[in-house]
Nucleic acid binder design. Structure first.
Lengths: 144, 144
DNA sequence: TATTGTTATACTCTATAACTATA
DNA sequence: TATAGTTATAGAGTATAACAATA
């Protein structure tokens, strides 16, 4: 092939696919999906949150959050608690089970990070990480 | 932050999100979705193909391909032609409109590749690209 | 018998619009 | 009036299982 930039982009898109597959596969055992796991991840960082905040954090509509929270309530990962100070709102809250998987996510991320990066020469790792960060910035600017 | 590998993985997952958003946004104008565009991309590389082959190429079930092809037929991107030599099968075939967007994909990929990579120092680009390829390989092995 | 694709059915994620309860 | 969340409705992607046509 002649266009090495286009080829590199193709490999990067390939990476998107395999990373998504990897997450989905690891989640399979927990009965969670990627959007639901993302919501749990946010809750662990933010603590109990109204659904409106979660909608903005995940970049989806309030209606979508209703559905995701419904599923997580049914499967025992979160509860809807009354929001102190606003009776219209709820405080979506992790259960013990929810906190347990959230901690497993943190451990799993650390382990995968080691497996993917720990063997790399320091400079190559630094170049990779810096380039990833720059690409995110570039694509973000274009969106705005 | 303490765990630089976990942090690098977080940035990489962030990249997955923004790349997906970027694709979805660019596709919006054509009325296509990412799975449908992926199918068109495969058809351009493979030429007219039975649905069975497309199911394997995309890693989805035959039923899912039926739905994707239905949508692409409705919107004028492909047709179902009789398969020469097997009357059970169809030959999913790009229309002129389908070939036109497929060519636009090629051009768009080249342009985005340039915008993301052309400004990088040669060694950094090489390190990035090589690392992406290695990660894909690592994750692929684990799947098998 | 085995394979190709469809129909039947179901679940998840996604959205917009109308509505309820509260601020 | 404005905001938080739900109900109603709809469409896309995904899957399994049963089935028809053909190999």
């Amino acid at each position: 092939m002649v266009d090495r930039y286009a080829d590199a982009l193709s490999r990067l898109l390939e990476l998107v696919v395999v990373l998504n597959d990897d997450m989905t596969r690891h989640l399979a055992g927990t009965g969670l999906t990627v959007p639901r796991a993302t919501l749990i991840w946010e809750l662990q960082h933010r603590g109990p949150s109204p659904q409106r905040v979660l909608a903005e954090a995940l970049g989806v509509s309030p209606r979508t959050i209703t559905g995701l929270v419904d599923g997580l309530v049914e499967t025992g990962y979160v509860t809807r608690e009354p929001h102190p100070g606003d009776r219209r709102a709820v405080a979506v809250t992790l259960t013990a089970q929810g906190r347990a998987v959230a901690e497993a996510f943190v451990a799993g991320r650390a382990e995968l990070g080691r497996r993917l990066f720990a063997h790399l020469p320091a400079q190559r790792f630094a170049h990779f990480d810096r380039t990833v960060a720059e690409i995110v910035t570039t694509l973000r600017e274009e969106t705005a």
